[in-house]
């Protein structure tokens, strides 16, 4: 299974909670957040543009890093 890997400039749990909330509100996503490495891994029916727009709603800088196979 492939997951989309994003960079999101999170610095603390407040940031990762904000990311969690916007993704939950979008719906249709399964995700893991790696706070120390500022990464968010998303498995979703939504396309990358929608996911990136959603992540950017937090006001933090975000970018798409590519596909990553789940371990």
């Amino acid at each position: 299974m492939q997951k989309h890997e994003f960079f999101v400039d999170m610095t603390c749990e407040g940031c990762s909670n904000a990311v969690t909330r916007v993704l939950h509100r979008l719906g249709g996503v399964q995700f893991d957040i790696d706070l120390p490495n500022k990464k968010v891994y998303i498995d979703s029916e939504h396309n990358v543009d929608t996911l990136l727009e959603t992540l950017k709603k937090t006001g933090k800088s975000a970018s798409y890093l590519g596909e990553k196979s789940a371990q």
């Binding site: 610095t11 603390c12 749990e13 407040g14 940031c15 909670n17 904000a18 937090t58 006001g59 933090k60």
Partner: peptide, 16 residues
């Protein structure tokens, strides 16, 4: 509710 650090504060101030 939900802000924990200064980067949360800055994000809101800049965005809004």
């Amino acid at each position: 509710e939900g802000m924990t650090c200064h980067s949360c504060v800055q994000a809101i101030e800049q965005h809004v």
